[in-house]
Amino acid sequence: MAKWIVEKGKGLYFLLFCVLMLVLPLILRMSEAGDYYLSLMVFAGINSMVVIGLNLLMGYAGQISLGHAAFFGLGAYSSGIVTTRFGLSPLWGFTLSIILNFLIAYLLAKPILKLKGHYLAMATLGLGMIFFVLFNELPITGASEGISVGKLYIFGYNMNSRYLKDINYYYLTWIFTLLLTYFALNIVNSRVGRALRAIHSKELAAHSIGVDISRFKTKVFILSTIYAGLAGSIFAHYSTFLCPVDFGLNYSIRVVTMGVVGGMSSIWGGLLGASVLSILPQFLDIFAEYDILIYGLVLILSVIFMPEGISQKISLCWEKCQKKWFHEV
């Protein structure tokens, strides 16, 4: 039995986690503030998608992006524009979100990902700022006044109904999040994941062993922008109104912080970091007043004292426990 658990290990954790997320709302709704908790979980899921994509790019392939808010925004505005400006079905919004991110990431990847280190950081940051200006100025995005987003119907079912909105979105968000987590976990434990880690570790050696570096970089960049875009689309329908301020440098930095705190080179770390930093601040009053200060401090302290993130600390503990429990069986 113990052996079977260890062998099936990773898959089993994921399954357990899915079950947990499935029943969690039932527990949360017992509370008076159930809907409030559910809405926090929705944001946790949305941020998780962005951070997991970012972790594939930064933690695995080692390519920094300080402009992911742009791709999150592209997804959100796709949904907003398609439903409000053109009155089309929200599903077209999701489709446009994927296509737009794919195209833009594809066009940008080649020239941008040739840059390394600080240069890449600055180029992605600059791109993020350019998109921010566009969100702020283009008439189609509603400029600084923002744009409202149409209701989301799935097979005729209104997701935004008054009493069930939070629970509806909880399940929608977490089905997406779990699916994207599953894909990401599979990718990192595969030929592709190894190639990405090889690029991160030693580009020259990776190249010499046959890895087409620019192709892998391009693909992982596109994938991470699609993750961000899908998150953006869900965010748009859930929040029903879009303001450019949600898609600026601050959000780019926030998702990087989440990745760093949870552990950039771990998919679970991304989930954990995003969830902790989406939920915890809401329960700490001190955060409301000094949020920037605390964010900065958390970022500095975690890179200095916990460069691999919380997830690594936890997995180290877990390995110890496993050894203790199962080796004695």
């Binding site: 912080t257 000094y290 949020d291 920037i292 200060l293 605390i294 964010y295 900065g296 401090l297 500095i300």
Partner: peptide
């Protein structure tokens, strides 16, 4: 992190 901390 430093820049955010300084701002805060």
């Amino acid at each position: 992190g430093a820049s955010i901390f300084f701002r805060g």
